[in-house]
């Protein structure tokens, strides 16, 4: 309506007074202005607002709309969380092959070395070596990126939603829920370190060699600081999972009053299971429960024997 009035005036004589009538269609700033952080601007014509909002809403695809909304973005975080939790559990079970010991030099060393070899060769001869491994790595990296970017954007929106300097009183959020934004970045830093350490073999404080997993891990966990670092990182993971696993069920809308107790206790149980499983390896090496490697750079030489 406002547009048509302005159009009519423009067609009229130049000496006509300015179109005061069109002002009546514009709601005064003070009435419509509701919040500082509204996406749709302030003090604008309500009819135009609704029209542009409709246009903007229609322009988006369903996935774009979901990603733009807080609920949909959290859904993406939950779905990628499932991928990451699934990987963590498989990784933990795979690590337990270290507990099978150093093996015999004649049969090619530790079981975990064979397991690592099997992972790299998975899919051969159908696929070239390491193809499957790289597919999984890329999938995991993509999930991690979506998880981190989603959480970062949500955190920024959440900060913007409350006035600065007036944080809400803590009235019953759990310790693990409260520390999610602390354990998250810590875990991200640890993942980078962990890949540099045992995958890229870049942190060669102790002797490392490609393919000699048992020897590499044995060497690293003879140093107390690596043991402490890994135990702490896994503890952070446990806290992250205790809230995160239950939270993803709630975000997916799968939690109901009838299931709530099972899901919450199940998440805690999963967190404990993962933490204990991961802790077994560094503790076993540090306490000397596992033998020295028979192959690799940390194997005792004839001279040292």
């Amino acid at each position: 309506m406002a547009g048509s009035l302005i159009g009519a005036v423009r067609c009229g004589a130049a000496s006509d007074p300015p179109p005061r009538a069109s002002i009546s269609y514009v709601t005064p700033d003070t009435e419509y202005r509701q919040g500082d952080n509204r996406l749709w601007g302030v003090g604008r014509n309500i009819d135009v607002d609704v029209a542009t909002r409709e246009l903007r809403r229609r322009r988006r695809t369903w996935i774009g709309e979901a990603w733009d909304s807080n609920v949909g973005k959290k859904l993406a975080v939950a779905l990628t969380g499932i991928v990451l939790v699934g990987y963590v559990v498989l990784h933990m079970i795979g690590n337990l092959t270290a507990l099978l010991g150093a093996g015999e030099a004649a049969t090619g060393g530790a079981q975990i070395d064979d397991y690592g070899h099997w992972l790299r060769e998975f899919g051969t001869p159908l696929l070239p070596a390491e193809t499957f491994l790289w597919a999984v790595r890329i999938f995991l990296l993509a999930s991690l990126v979506v998880h981190v970017v989603g959480v970062y954007q949500l955190t920024m929106r959440n900060r913007a939603a409350r006035p600065a300097g007036f944080p809400a009183k803590r009235i019953g959020r759990s310790w693990s829920a409260r520390t999610m934004r602390l354990t998250g970045p810590l875990l991200l830093a640890f993942i980078v370190f962990h890949i540099l350490h045992f995958t890229l073999l870049a942190v060669d404080v102790t002797p490392l060699a490609h393919g000699e997993i048992y020897s590499n891990v044995y060497g690293a966990f003879q140093k107390w600081y690596f043991v402490v670092l890994y135990l702490a990182a896994v503890a952070a993971l446990g806290y992250h999972l205790r809230h995160g696993v239950w939270s993803l069920f709630q975000t997916l809308g799968l939690d109901t009053p009838a299931r709530n107790a099972y899901l919450r206790h199940g998440s805690t149980a999963l967190a404990v299971f993962v933490v204990v499983g991961f802790w077994m390896v560094p503790i076993s090496f540090a306490t000397g429960a596992l033998p020295e490697p028979v192959t690799g750079p940390n194997a005792p030489t004839e001279v040292s024997k």
């Binding site: 509701q34 919040g35 500082d36 952080n37 509204r38 996406l39 749709w40 909002r53 733009d68 909304s69 807080n70 609920v71 973005k73 959290k74 949500l154 929106r157 959440n158 900060r159 913007a160 939603a161 409350r162 809400a168 803590r170 009235i171 019953g172 959020r173 759990s174 829920a177 409260r178 999610m180 809230h243 239950w246 939270s247 709630q250 975000t251």
Partner: peptide, 13 residues
């Protein structure tokens, strides 16, 4: 979302 409310982190407060 357009009103500028934040997102849920399942604190339950």
């Amino acid at each position: 979302d357009e009103e500028g409310f934040g997102g849920c982190t399942n604190y339950g407060e």
